[in-house]
Design a protein around this nucleic acid. Structure first.
Lengths: 191, 191
DNA sequence: ATGCCTTGCAAGCATACACTTGCATACATC
DNA sequence: GATGTATGCAAGTGTATGCTTGCAAGGCAT
């Protein structure tokens, strides 16, 4: 692997587990298996390195999309939710660290082009499509509904390892149940 | 105010905005308006001080309870949800910091006696009561439902200031909509 | 072979940190 | 008045950190 890539990965890992202050240049260099100076030669400063490392770590996402003409809400939403949850679960460490430091280092937080915003937009559009195609029996606010589904997926992925009482079920089972509840909440027509 | 209390409050504030490493004894002392040594004389070490400060900051909670024989699900759940959300919103800073550092400092994270666990238990019990009293039209998993409502309240409170696209509505309006969706999800009987 | 480019090594610098020591000052209780 | 207790001030210790400097070793193209 390229040394630059190795450094970026090491920086993201160390940052995820120790935060900005804890991610010392010495430790990142050790984790990357290179000399400390090489970091500075490549990225100039610790701040620039971490900034880019977090940006790249967030960019690895393969954004799951929902079909444009919705056909089978249950199947499509279930598939989408499981993928989103899986992704959040894998990245939970760096996401939690980023969120914990967003007030001190807002510039390091991937905001506008973040995956979550993208996911929210996609889901909202999909839900609007559901209504347009008469696949729901009741009226509801797409924005609130999207926030609700994404919210519970997010909270579950962030909290299940540290608050096991709140999320006792296994990940896949839990997500399936969330989707079930969600479908009923938006009055999805059974197929 | 007692100096000990002042120090604890200052420690919690500084910790909430800068994390464990960022919460230097100098800055805490400055924030508390006392000498740095006083911290050590009272609490022995920075770790002990922060541990107790976070514990106390989390303990300030006035845990909102749900009525035992449920009567009006919409009114009761709405009231409860708004209170929970308000509380999470007020404490979002320290909660985010705690979550971001839970892997590095698990001992500082208020777990078992935490408010969230308590809230989850109370809500689960309430939902079971709803089913027992035939106030719901469909069957559902109380645990998953509780996680869903708490999850979205949590995600909203943690994320609305840093991901405004995901949570565009005003807090109270958003919570009301979550509760509406939730009531439909659990098939709550209209009253 | 020469020169360039990347990387490594050793050492160091200025700063900040947690924490300690010694001493002085106030205040309250006896 | 004497004594103990809580707090403050000044100074310092050892360590860690971000970052720099100087120099050498290796690969690679000309």
């Amino acid at each position: 692997m390229d040394i630059r890539t190795r450094i970026l990965k090491a920086a993201a890992d160390v940052y995820a587990s120790t935060g900005f202050r804890g991610a010392t240049t010495r430790r990142i260099a050790q984790e990357a298996g290179c000399n400390e100076i090489t970091l500075f030669r490549h990225f100039g400063s610790k701040a620039c390195l971490l900034h880019e490392a977090v940006r790249c770590a967030g960019m690895e996402i393969a954004p799951t999309t929902l079909p444009d003409p919705p056909r089978s809400p249950r199947a499509e939403l279930s598939d989408w939710a499981h993928r989103q949850h899986q992704h959040l679960l894998e990245k939970r460490s760096i996401i939690r660290t980023c969120m914990g430091e967003v007030e001190e280092h807002p510039e390091i937080f991937p905001t506008a082009d973040g995956a979550t915003d993208h996911a929210a937009l996609g889901l909202t559009t999909y839900l609007a499509g559901l209504k347009a195609h008469k696949l729901t029996a009741v009226d509801f606010d797409e924005g609130a509904a999207a926030a609700m589904l994404i919210g519970v997926l997010f909270a579950d992925a962030m909290g299940r390892d540290i608050m096991p009482k709140l999320f006792p079920a296994k990940p896949e089972q839990a997500v399936t149940r969330y989707v079930d509840l969600f479908l009923r909440a938006i009055g999805a027509v059974k197929q």
